[in-house]
Each structure stands twice: as C-alpha cells, then as structure tokens.
Design a protein around this nucleic acid. Structure first.
Lengths: 290, 290
DNA sequence: CGATTATTTGAAAGGTGTCAAGATAGGTGG
DNA sequence: CCACCTATCTTGACACCTTTCAAATAATCG
C-alpha cells in the first residue's frame, strides 16, 4: 500500500522518434509538437520524487519503497539562495531535494561563475563528494525549496541494507556525470542559440521525468538571465538577445520564471539535442534503443 | 617483497606554495621555477602505475598490492588511434592503461568533436559506464599504448574481495569527475590563453603523480594542435596563435609531441590554475590543506 | 624521396563581449 | 491603492576575441 503511481515512467516511452529537420528556420514545418501529446505530462502526481526518479532505472519492492519514503521524513524548507554546500563545508550529510531547485557552481578568483549543473526534485546529493577532502564546488538553492538533510552515516547504513537501492543511486550518479559531459560538449562546441536551446531541452526532459512539466509543455524554471549566462558561458546581454531570437522563432515563452516550450521537436533540432545521454530511451533522435 | 617504491607520493608534498603573481607579463619575475626542483620529478620509476596512482589516496597491504599487480598481467599494445570504446560498444571490460595515453571524446552530427578528458598511465576505466546502457561517449588512444583488458566480472570479483581497493577506485573516479567540472569552468569562463595554460598545468600535475614528468619539467604530450583545439573548444588556428604567445612569454616549449613547462608558477598564474581539485594537497594556491 | 599530415601566416568576417543607459517588473511601505 | 526601490530585462554602439578561408611552409612516414 506504499506503492505510488508512476504515470510518467509508463507514458514517457510513447514520446519518441522526434526527427531532425533541415529547415530549422521554419518552425511550422515540424509536427507534432509536444503540445499535441498532453497525456505525456499528466501533471505532477503526488508521488515521492525520489522514488519516481529512481524507478526510471529499476523497480523496488515494498520494503525498499518504505525505506526510501522514510528517508524523506522531516523535510525542511530553505529560502532561495541558501547555500547547502560550499568549499568550506565539512561534508557530513547528503541532501534530498523534494521540491524546488538547486544548482552546483564554481567561482573563479576573478568573480566569474560557472554553473555546473542543476538539481531537480528527486535528486539525492552529493555522493560525489569525498568526505576525506573538501568540496571542490558549491551547491545553492535556486528558489525556496524543500530539502531533507540526511547524515552520511544513516545513508551508508541504508545503502548497505538495500543494495538494490544503492545500485539505483549509482546509476543516478552515472547519469549526472553523463549530463556533465554533455554540458562540456554543449559549451565547447555549440553556438549561443544552440547552447540555450540545448539547456532548455535537457531541463524539460529531466523535469518531465519527475512530473514537473505541465500538459502544455511548460514548467517552472526559476533562472534569471545572469544564471543562464553562467550556465552557458555567455554574457547576460548575449543571453538576452539569444532569448529574443528563440522567442522570435516561436519556440519558447520565458517569463515569470516559467518556461513554455512551444515546439519541442523544433527546439531540439535547433540545439542538436539528442536525449539518449539522459537514459531516456525515447529521446534518441528517431531511434528507440532496445 | 611486492612492495614498490613510491617516491612521488613522498616527494610531491614538498612542491608547494607556489604563489600568484600579479605581474603576469614578466616571466622572469617568478621563481623558483619547477626546473629548480629536480628532486620532485625523479624520473619514472618502474613501479606499477595503477598502484602509484591509487596510493595517493590510501595505503595497500601486501595482499592488495598482489591483487593489483595480478590485474596488470597480460597487457597488450595497441596502435595510436585505436578505439577502445565507442557508442556501439557493448561494455564488457574495463581497461587499465599502463603506458601511453588515451582520451574520451564526443562527436556532434556536424562533425565537431569535444575532448572530454585524458587518461594517463595508471588510470582504470571505465567504471563510469553502466553496463545496462550504451556508452554516451568514446575512448581512443592518443599514441601507441599498453593496455590491459579486464572482464567486468573479474573486476567485480576483485572489488568485492578487496573493499579497500574498491574505495580507492571510487575516490579515483570522484577525482575524474572533479576534473570534468574544472574543465567546464575552464571552457566556460576562461579565455584562450588561460584555457591552454590551465590544460598544461593540469596535465603536468597529473602526470607527475605517476612519474611521467622529467626532472626538467618536461613530459610527453602526444597531442597535435587540432586535439588541443577540441580539448579547449577553440579552433586549431587560434590554438596555434595562442601557443605562439605562450612561447613568446617564455613559458613553454611544445614540439615533437613533448611539452616543457619552463616556469610552472608563472603558467599557473596565467591560467588561474588552482590544483586542489586534483587532490594534490600541495598545489592549493599557497595553502597546504590539513 | 614522394606523399601525406601538421603547422604557420594573412586578411577578412562574424560572433560575442563590454559599457552605458533606459525600460520594465516585482516588492515594500505609506 | 499609489509611490518608490531594487532587481531584472532591454537596447544601442562599439571593440575585440575568435573563426573562417586560403595558401604557404614545415614536419613526418613509408
């Protein structure tokens, strides 16, 4: 009876085989857009986002589910901008993000900041830190968020008790690294409009997996243009102009910290987005693996 | 009697506290250069590079050493350019690089390539792939290299038998991810001369840890200018001009696929290189942790 | 030695950054 | 409900870093 519904897990595979079109400058040429498939984004179900996320990779039995649910107990709400981990922190906890959003970042002595990644509901972090040494980067909240702080000791205990859960978390960590690699490719090799488009596509896929994307293809994305700049390695002025181009192409609406992707297929074509690195079998450009 | 010498492990901490200098344009202003400390790079000792690398993080007992040495048995030599893993590969082995060098990369449909990282002697890869899904990137050899191909099954067996070794390998993997993050910062936020300088500094530190750097601060770096371009997200033409600037500043000599860093401190200052992300306690800008 | 690959150089175009100012929006207090 | 304040977004002009394209030179390899 602890079982949760997993609508996205079941529905997502049906969203597949979007194709690349050469006429990237003709937004109308591509269909069906994601808007035409409302059943894919059946709204956020009240499920535990951690379970929702990890069940992308495996199936848990009731005991495991119970353990994971217990993990989500006693959450706390922190304000936007709250720093969960910085380079002076001694890492004694892992964090589970239940609601809201967070980001990893690094700052240069010159003051330049690079966003290294975003954390979405259901993300458990950070198993990537070695308790024996200091964090090499920081993590802060993008908006008011609900977070569970879990002592590492307790986490270790749970993982040794449930190797199946440990395996799922390892896979989740591998996925994080795969995202990091894709970002390197994105920042290193794509131009401004592609960088931004690619980021938007990625966030939509990731958020859809945890039920954060509405039926009309819109979702909360509490980033300002400076954040986007530090995410893509561009300046905020150039981000502004790039967003105008994307709006002009009829691909997105971004306001009130909410992004509507009006034509996912076209946006993905612009970005050269190929979602298989997200282990979403369904977003592999025209080919469904397995 | 299986014990190996670990000269670098002992010597490196003495290389410390290089400082930032503001007068970046005056190469002569900085001393002592790394050349003045030959004892740091006492030449490649014949030790097993895997053990050399992992003993940065821990100490092994004789049994563990024996197991690791056994792992290095039956190496094979592959030619330059040989592809060890690509996106069509089914991952059934991990690889241990004993001699030579390799690189991870990703290619866009447009043909643009991004180098994601370099593998040096002593690197064991890739625990980062999930056997259940396809690799999201490829790995190829940079030059003729000696590699051991280890069945995943055998590796798993060894790791479950020696949890201490598993822990060390996990830390090594965490370090790889930390390097990846630093690369994102590098490509996203630094200019051309800093990107190249930073890459050189990182390679020198990493290679010095496995005894690949000579007493005069020079080491094999079998990359051409196109590789450097795809590493830094620049074009090969611009790399060429950037290298000329670095040569003009008297910071490096790069020819015959070999790099000599003439003044490490100065190069690090140019790059804003801060080595603590490499878990080299000694390269933390002026401050030795712990 | 020829043939290929890699490096170097120049000129020109273009993408992106910089600087500065004005407009808009969201929040706060009266 | 309005006035104000601050953060954010928008816009323009200009500089410059980096790319592109082309060609010449040098290095490497069989």
């Amino acid at each position: 009876m602890l079982r949760y519904t997993h609508s996205l897990n079941i529905d997502l595979p049906t969203l597949c085989e979007f194709e690349l079109h050469e006429d990237v400058d003709q937004p109308s040429a591509i269909s069906p857009s994601i808007r035409d498939r409302p059943f894919l984004f059946a709204g956020a179900c009240p499920a535990n986002p951690l379970i929702m996320r990890l069940e992308q990779f495996t199936r848990f039995d009731n005991q495991e589910i119970a353990a994971l649910v217990a993990l989500s107990a006693s959450p706390r709400i922190y304000p936007s901008g709250h720093i969960l981990i910085n380079d002076c922190t001694c890492v004694e906890h892992v964090f589970l993000l239940l609601e809201g959003m967070a980001y990893r970042y690094k700052i240069l002595p010159s003051g330049k900041r690079q966003i290294l990644g975003y954390l979405v509901p259901g993300d458990l972090f950070d198993l990537q830190f070695d308790p024996a040494s200091r964090p090499d980067h920081s993590i802060a909240l993008l908006c008011k968020s609900t977070v569970v702080k879990i002592p590492i000791r307790r986490m270790d205990h749970l993982l040794s008790q449930f190797p199946h859960v440990e395996r799922a978390l390892t896979v989740a960590t591998l996925l994080d690294v795969a995202i990091l690699r894709e970002w390197l490719l994105n920042i290193g090799q794509r131009n401004a409009i592609q960088k931004v488009s690619h980021f938007f596509c990625e966030m939509m896929v990731r958020l859809s997996k945890v039920g954060q994307v509405d039926a009309d293809g819109s979702f909360d994305l509490p980033v300002n243009q400076m954040m986007l700049a530090d995410t893509t390695g561009l300046t905020s002025v150039h981000i502004n102009r790039t967003l105008q181009r994307l709006r002009g192409l009829g691909l997105i609406i971004l306001k009130h910290r909410r992004l509507s992707i009006l034509n996912f297929n076209h946006l993905a074509a612009v970005a050269d987005f190929e979602g298989s690195y997200l282990r979403c079998r369904t977003f592999a450009r025209g080919v469904a693996y397995d």
